[in-house]
Design a protein around this nucleic acid. Structure first.
Length: 471
RNA sequence: GGUCCCAUCGUCUAGCCUGGCCUAGGACGGAGCCCUCUCAAGGCUCAGACACGGGUUCGAAUCCCGUUGGGACCA
């Protein structure tokens, strides 16, 4: 049994796309499950559009989602000699030939063919010219098989049959000496001994063009798997106008990488009714025959639900660590430095049930940092009124009698006071909530007090009382 | 235009290969109720799909053919 070797081969012409991450993820899961090798290869032969920033973004994105690679990153631009060498090898074997047709001529002939209702492929004019040493501009073309069929036994789509008669002789080396996409992938996949080529299904029809090249060069043909596309809500290919498509944009919006991975894997793959998986489970349970054949619509709502799920269930300390950069960019750097990591984790526990993203969490968590809070104007106006002042004063007095905070005792004290006054819980709870957090919505009051501690609780209650009296 | 791929609730999907357990299951989203100091979380309930047409069969979401509709690639 030969070792499984898979690859992810993005072109660095922009940020790392969520579709790309999903392709990488399926490859990675398969590699890890099979104890195989995952190769990262940067397809940067398009010099005009490839950028260093983009390569850095791909690497950063891959690291963020935790898809570690075993070999690479390789770059095609560093492998030019290999492509030329193998292209010339094909020429020497008589499997490739020089084509001196000018681009304009090709264009005219293509139009003519189309006008006559024929398919617009290369007519093979230079195929039998036997040019050995082209004098001017020339491209190298591969002699594609013209008869028979090429059968691709796809891991996902099943058996797909193509008639070779529809194939034309594709250019493998351009007149400028650069290899074409369809050629360089074959050489790389062959030389890197890739056993399973898993990519987007936009490459399915490229496959019968590539298989004969493997054959001609005497390389073993890998298995292929073509993943369905990811679409936007209007069923068009996912793009900027559907919202963020860069993986790092999701990081910056406050999504957890585990949630992202879990969401992406379920977009096109399933394991019965299970929705939430640990990485280990994914590695164990992943299989090609449960990969969907049809395209899937990306759902920001479901992603958000899963993210909330992960925020609730991940170890609080881990969530707290991921939260820190968000607190810092919200201007809370100093405050964050003053508090302990465990207190931060307590804060996470306090608010995690009410939050969808880490960005949300910042909003929920800010009231607990300073000594005091600023009151939301509307909230104060509604709840910190002269009518509640006397009761609030009594509450403060009774709480002050306790040397330390104790949830059961303080809660009992609170309820007793409400009862004595003949009030409903909400009548006192809301003013207290505003005093403690500045807002009308918060976690349970006694959990809030716990996180605040005795002294800050009393300080804030007194401030609230002042406000109520002044109103 | 040619070739190829695809088709179950609004969305992600289970079921399809190995027909009957499907009056089609789960999840997100939506509606409602419960819980409740607010907001959430949670629990319960409801609405909601086998693209269409032919076959095959005692019986089809499941098998076959066609149609329609999407999409990709080639240029």
């Amino acid at each position: 049994m030969t070792q499984v070797r898979v690859r992810f081969a993005p072109s660095p012409t922009g940020f790392l796309h969520i579709g790309g991450v999903r392709t990488a993820l399926f490859n990675w899961l398969f590699a890890r499950q099979q104890h195989g090798v995952f190769v990262l290869r940067i397809e940067d032969t398009d010099r005009g559009r490839s950028t260093e920033e983009s390569i850095a973004a791909i690497i950063e994105g891959m690291k963020w989602v935790g898809l570690d690679w075993d070999e690479g990153p390789f770059r095609q631009t560093e492998r030019m000699e290999l492509y030329r060498h193998h292209a010339m090898a094909l020429f020497e074997q008589g499997r490739a030939y020089w084509c001196v047709c000018k681009p304009e001529e090709l264009e005219t002939r293509r139009r003519e063919a189309e006008a006559r209702g024929l398919s617009p492929r290369y007519d093979g004019r230079c195929r039998n010219l036997g040019i050995t040493q082209p004098s001017g501009e020339a491209a190298l073309r591969f002699k594609a098989p013209q008869e028979g069929q090429t059968v691709v036994d796809d891991l996902i789509k099943g058996e797909v049959v193509f008639d070779n008669s529809v194939l034309d002789d594709l250019i493998i080396l351009r007149s400028n000496g650069y290899p074409t996409y369809n050629f360089s992938v074959v050489i790389d996949d062959a030389l890197m001994r890739i056993t399973h080529v898993v990519r987007g299904d936009d490459h399915l029809t490229n496959t019968p063009r590539q298989v004969p090249i493997f054959d001609a060069l005497g390389f073993p043909v890998p298995r292929f798997g073509h993943l369905p596309m990811i679409l936007g809500s209007d069923k068009a290919r996912l793009s900027k106008r559907h919202g963020a498509t860069s993986i790092l944009a999701y990081r910056d919006m406050g999504y957890l990488s585990d949630a992202m991975v879990n969401y992406l894997v379920r977009l096109g793959w399933s394991h019965g009714d299970q929705e939430v998986f640990t990485r280990q489970e994914l590695i164990e349970k992943f299989s090609w025959d449960h990969v969907q054949k049809s395209a899937a619509v990306f759902s920001p709502e479901k992603l958000q639900w899963l993210n909330a799920e992960y925020i609730r269930t991940s170890p609080p300390q881990q969530v707290a660590d991921a939260l820190v950069p968000f607190l810092e960019s919200a201007g809370l750097t100093e405050q964050v430095q003053k508090v302990s990591r465990t207190w931060l984790a307590e804060l996470v526990v306090l608010v995690k049930e009410r939050v969808k993203t880490l960005a949300d969490m910042v909003m929920w968590v800010t009231p607990y940092f300073g000594e005091t809070v600023s009151f939301d104007e509307e909230a104060a106006k509604k709840f910190l009124t002269p009518a509640v002042a006397p009761v609030l004063a009594k509450l403060v007095a009774r709480f002050e009698a306790f040397p330390t905070y104790s949830k059961p005792e303080w809660e009992e004290t609170f309820k007793k006071l409400v009862e004595e006054e003949g009030w409903k819980m909400g009548q006192l709870a809301q003013p207290v909530r505003v005093a403690l957090t500045g807002r009308t919505a918060s976690p349970g009051l006694f959990e809030v007090m716990e996180v605040l501690g005795r002294d800050r609780t009393l300080l804030r209650l007194r401030k609230g009382l002042e406000q109520a009296r002044a109103a």
